[in-house]
Amino acid sequence: MAIKVLVPTPLQKFTNNQATIEATGGNVQELIDSLESACPGIKDRICDESGKPRRFLNLYVNSEDIRFLEGVDTQLNDGDEVSIVPAVAGG
């Protein structure tokens, strides 16, 4: 199942400077695990010590914040787009 992932600048060192990569996974958690296999080290940056996405990082599935969906259990379908966006902006 191909999922398009948009990667912010601070994480692009793990993706060979690619802003967009493809990954797989039936839900967001599986997608993060799949990203780690393809880009070793990236999971530690996305998730904190407890394994949850860091509080200053927003994850969107097709433009909806996963906190308004099922969190890391949010289901993913072929062709979905997942954006990883730093939260610290604005105001």
Partner: peptide, 20 residues
């Protein structure tokens, strides 16, 4: 919040000074 997110993405790709 959607505007802000879009701008975070634009800031990645354009060499602009985004004040916030």
């Amino acid at each position: 919040d959607q505007v802000n997110r879009l701008c975070s993405e634009v800031a990645n790709t354009h060499g602009w000074g985004f004040v916030n």
